[in-house]
Simulated assay, not measured.
Amino acid sequence: MAVRLQSPDFPWWLVALVLLALAAGAVILTDTGLRQTLRILSVGLATTILVTATAFTGALALGLLVALGGRSRHRLVSNAARLYVEVVRGVPVLVLLFWIAFAGAPGLVAAWNWLATPLREAGLVDMLMVRDVSLLARAVLALVVAYSAFVAEILRAGIEAVPAGQVEAAKALGLGSFQRFRLVILPQAIRTVLPPLANDLVSMVKDSSLVSVLGVADVTQMGKVYASGSFRFFETYSVVAYLYLLMTVSLSLGARALERRLRRSGQS
C-alpha cells in the first residue's frame, strides 16, 4: 500500500513563499547596491514598527471604549459611539491623516492651552505651541482614530457573539459586570475577533506607509529619499516591497498559529 507523505492540505504555497523570500534575501545580501539600499532602509524600519505598534495599541484601547459605548443602555452614549464609527469609517485614512495633522492638532493644542490656563498662570506649565507636537505624534494619532472605528465594530461583534445564556449564568453566580466581562465575555470574544483583528494589524502595517506624506522617516520615506538621490528606483522600491512583505506575512502566519492554538485550547 502506498503511503502518502503529505496531506492534501499541505501548505505548498507557504513553502513556495519561504523559498522566494530566502532567494530574494540572498540576492539582496550578495549584491552590493541592494545591500546598501537595505542598510539605508533599515533606518526607517524601526519607525515603521514603532508607528504600527503604538497606533494599533491605541486603536485597540479606543476601539474597546467605543464598542462598550455602543452597547451602553444610555441612548446618548450609544448614539455618540455609533456616530463616531460611521463618520470615521466614511473618511479615507489619507484624508484623516491630513485633517488631524494640520487641522485637528492645532485645535487640540488650543483646547489644551485653554484648559491649562490656571496651571500656566501659576507658572507650572508653559504654553504649548503647535510646532511642539511632532509630525510623528500626529501621524500616530491619525492612525489610532482611523482604525479605532474598525476595531470597535470587530469587538462589538465579538462581544455580541457570546451566548446570552453564559452571561445570565455568570449573573446567577453573583459576578459583577466587570467580572462578567473579564472572566466570561472577553475570553470567548477573543477567539472570535482574533482573525479580523489580525487582518487590521496587517492593514495598519501597510497603511503606516501613509505617514511618509508628512515627512516621517519610515521605510517608504527613506526609500523615496534614497531613490530620488540615487535614481535606483527599481532596486529601492523592490527592497521596500520586500520589507513590507516580510512584516505582513510574518504577522499573518503568527496570527494563524495563535488562532489554531486558541481553538485547540477552547475544544480541550
Rank of each mutant, 00 (worst) to 15 (best):
L22Y: 11
V18T: 05
I40R: 14
L38T: 07
S42Q: 13
I49Y: 03
A59I: 09
L34Y: 04
V27H: 11
S78K: 03
S78C: 06
G33F: 15
L64I: 03
D31F: 10
V51G: 02
A24W: 13
A23Y: 09
W12C: 06
L5C: 01
S42M: 14
G44I: 07
A80T: 04
A80Y: 10
A67Y: 03
E86L: 15
A67D: 01
V66Q: 04
T57R: 06
L17I: 05
Y84D: 02
A23W: 12
A16D: 05
L38P: 08
I40H: 12
V27G: 07
L65C: 04
G44V: 10
S7Q: 03
I28K: 15
R73Y: 12
L5N: 01
D31V: 01
T30N: 11
I49S: 06
R4N: 09
A81E: 04
I40T: 14
V15S: 06
A59Q: 05
V88L: 01
T48I: 05
I40Q: 13
S7C: 04
L20C: 12
A61G: 13
L62S: 00
L68I: 03
G63I: 03
L38C: 10
G70E: 01
T57M: 10
T32N: 14
L34V: 02
R82I: 08
L5H: 04
L38A: 10
L83G: 10
L22I: 08
L14M: 08
H74T: 08
G58F: 00
T48N: 07
N79H: 15
A24P: 15
L29A: 14
T47E: 11
A23E: 09
A24N: 15
S78G: 07
V87T: 02
T52C: 04
T37N: 15
L19R: 04
L22R: 09
A61P: 12
R75E: 07
E86D: 14
